[in-house]
């Protein structure tokens, strides 16, 4: 059972998070005030004014206007913006979720293979690291084109959002493989010898010892992977020309920036909230799976 101390810690954390948001909004507004003063006075103190980003309402719309924009329809008689963004978030979430699940499975399978065949670890690791240096933007269109041409053997019809999920997989599996491998290798020699002494097979040792032992290593990676899958999905949408999702909205609002700059900011807020939501879900799962158990107990002694 989580004790009061645990709850107090979590509530404190939530408060710090909120305070951080307020502070961020405050800084944004403060910067606008200072920038306005500089612009109004037509004074350029030691060129500082010309080096700083411009802070007029077109470049940095007031927070009040951004929040108000959520309620405005984007076109005559259409849905309000928040509705549009919510749909975009849902669409991107689906891509990211599929990418996340596939990525975690792929990442773990690779980690297990690397652990099982130690020589593979030495030989394959450089390639796995190198795979992450290939820019996502460069391969995203290729994956979409492949997807349209090559996946017709599947029993269902391939759609472009599935290609976007594949792009997300590409970013997701890496942190899982790296931390998963460390976690799988974390049991001490005594624990492994104990399993040997019970004549436990390789699968039994994996299931009863290595996988549970890897969980504390895996959860930080899962948080990174969840965010990576969202980034992958958004970038994938943008670079492959989707007509749905947060990435599409960001691109769309970018082209219409001169008439309604608030919308792009609103879409960014939507993306940030999606990321926070994903991180919160992983934290909850971590809590339910009791991984914090050891730390809690140690903190008490």
């Amino acid at each position: 059972m989580p004790d009061i101390r645990w709850w107090r810690k979590k509530i404190l954390l939530a408060c710090t998070g909120l305070a951080g948001l307020v502070a961020l909004a405050g800084l944004y507004s403060l910067y606008k005030v200072i920038g306005r003063a500089l612009d109004d006075g037509q004074r350029d103190w030691w060129f500082i004014g010309s080096m700083l980003p411009r802070s007029d309402d077109r470049n940095m719309p007031p927070i009040r206007d951004i929040l108000a924009e959520f309620n405005q329809p984007t076109r005559e008689g259409g849905d309000p913006l928040w509705n549009l963004i919510f749909d975009g978030v849902l669409f991107t979430l689906r891509e990211a979720l599929v990418g996340f699940v596939l990525g975690v499975v792929t990442g773990m399978v690779i980690a297990i293979l690397l652990m099982r065949f130690l020589t593979l670890e030495k030989g394959a690791m450089p390639y796995i690291i190198a795979s992450q240096t290939v820019p996502l933007i460069a391969i995203a269109p290729i994956i979409v084109i492949w997807g349209r041409k090559n996946f017709d053997f599947l029993p269902w019809e391939w759609q472009d959002w599935m290609s976007v999920s594949l792009i997300a997989v590409y970013l997701t599996f890496f942190p899982i493989t790296v931390n998963g491998l460390r976690g799988l290798q974390s049991p001490n020699p005594d624990s492994k010898e104990l399993m040997d002494s019970y004549a436990a097979g390789w699968w039994q040792t994996l299931w009863k010892l290595r996988l549970p032992a890897s969980l504390p290593f895996l959860f930080p990676a899962l948080k990174i992977a969840a965010l990576a899958s969202i980034i992958g999905a958004i970038v994938g949408e943008i670079s492959s020309g989707q007509s749905d999702g947060l990435g599409f909205l960001i691109l769309d609002f970018f082209t219409k920036y001169s008439t309604a700059p608030e919308r792009l900011y609103a879409a960014i807020i939507g993306a940030a909230l999606l990321g926070l939501f994903a991180a919160a879900v992983i934290s909850l799962a971590e809590f339910i799976l009791n991984v914090h158990r050891r730390q809690v107990a140690n903190a008490q002694t």
Partner: peptide, 30 residues
């Protein structure tokens, strides 16, 4: 292979994600 012996080490080597009861049940599960 016939599990004729039990073994104990200097480090107790209990699995910290299992309760005491579950730790004792480990060889029986296997």
């Amino acid at each position: 292979k016939d599990r004729d012996y039990g073994m104990a080490f200097q480090t107790a080597s209990l699995f910290d994600w299992r309760t005491v009861r579950k730790n004792i049940e480990l060889p029986l599960e296997l």
